[in-house]
């Protein structure tokens, strides 16, 4: 099956968009899932219908899935490892006298 442009007739062949929802003002955006849509405006409408039927969001982001660059799970160790041997990045590294509130 294909349409006039030769593309298969299926709405899942429309580009994939990742949907991020902000639950309340001031909160971070959180990944909710994805939708297929022809363009950004269509993606926003689909995302609203699928992921925000009950006021789950006050704002939505839709991002083309292809535009996301992610770290690879297999590299997680080496990629994030440098943090572990830098104890001086953590507050516990520093000595403070007992009985004094530093902050």
């Amino acid at each position: 099956m294909s349409d006039v442009t030769g593309a298969p007739v299926g709405d899942s062949h429309w580009p994939l968009w990742e949907v991020f929802t902000q639950e309340n003002q001031g909160q971070p955006f959180e990944h909710a899932g994805s939708v297929h849509a022809t363009d950004a405006e269509h993606a926003l409408q689909n995302a609203r219908d699928v992921y925000a039927r009950r006021g789950e969001a006050v704002n939505l982001w839709v991002v083309p899935s292809a535009a996301i660059t992610a770290s690879a799970p297999s590299d997680a160790g080496p990629f994030f490892d440098p943090g572990n041997d830098k104890a001086y990045r953590h507050p516990q590294f520093y000595i403070a006298p007992r009985g004094i509130r530093i902050f």
Partner: peptide, 14 residues
């Protein structure tokens, strides 16, 4: 929701 989850396994909803 679930079709979208299934697509993450590398299958096509269509």
């Amino acid at each position: 929701y679930i079709y979208c989850g299934t697509e993450t396994l590398g299958v096509d909803r269509f």
